[in-house]
Simulated assay, not measured.
Amino acid sequence: MLAPHMAGRLVGGKRIWLLPVAALLRAILLVAADGLGRWLLPPLEVPVGIVTAVIGAPYFLYLIGKEKSRSW
């Protein structure tokens, strides 16, 4: 769910590029999260879902805060 928001910020108003950029970003984020999960604790593997949640939660909180400040 993080990739479409990031893609929207990257491509701006060019809607034709939104889906391909979001798909590419999603793939890059998942590969990076998998690599980070394997690297963090070498004998163990941290699940990809946990790593993506740790990366995505602060970004969504930022988006919520930004949206609330705009609505006031």
Rank of each mutant, 00 (worst) to 15 (best):
G65C: 15
R15M: 11
A33K: 02
L61W: 07
A3I: 11
P43C: 07
V31C: 01
L19F: 06
G56L: 02
W17A: 12
R9I: 13
G56A: 11
A53Q: 10
W39I: 08
P20I: 10
Y62Q: 14
I50L: 11
A22T: 05
I64A: 12
L29D: 00
G35T: 07
I55A: 06
L29Y: 01
F60W: 03
S71L: 11
G49W: 10
F60M: 03
G8Q: 04
E45D: 09
I64Y: 07
V48D: 04
Y62A: 15
W17E: 04
L29K: 02
L19E: 11
Y62H: 15
I28A: 12
T52C: 02
W72E: 07
R15E: 12
M6W: 11
K66L: 13
G37W: 02
L41K: 07
M1N: 07
R15G: 09
L10K: 13
L10N: 03
R38M: 01
L18F: 08
I55Q: 05
R70H: 12
G37S: 01
A53V: 15
K14M: 12
M1H: 11
G56C: 07
I50G: 02
P4T: 12
P42Q: 05
P47I: 09
V31N: 00
W17M: 09
I16R: 12
A53M: 14
L24T: 14
E67L: 01
R26G: 04
R26W: 03
G49Q: 06
A27W: 01
Y59L: 15
R38N: 04
K68D: 11
L63V: 13
I50Q: 00
Y59M: 13
Y59F: 15
K14W: 13
A57M: 06
G56T: 07
Y62L: 14
L63R: 14
L41N: 13
V54L: 15
I64V: 13
P4S: 10
G35I: 04
T52K: 04
A33G: 02
A53I: 09
K66Y: 08
V51N: 03
G12N: 06
P4C: 15
L25A: 03
E45Y: 05
L19N: 08
L2Q: 05
L2W: 00
A23C: 08
R26F: 05
L30V: 05
R9H: 14
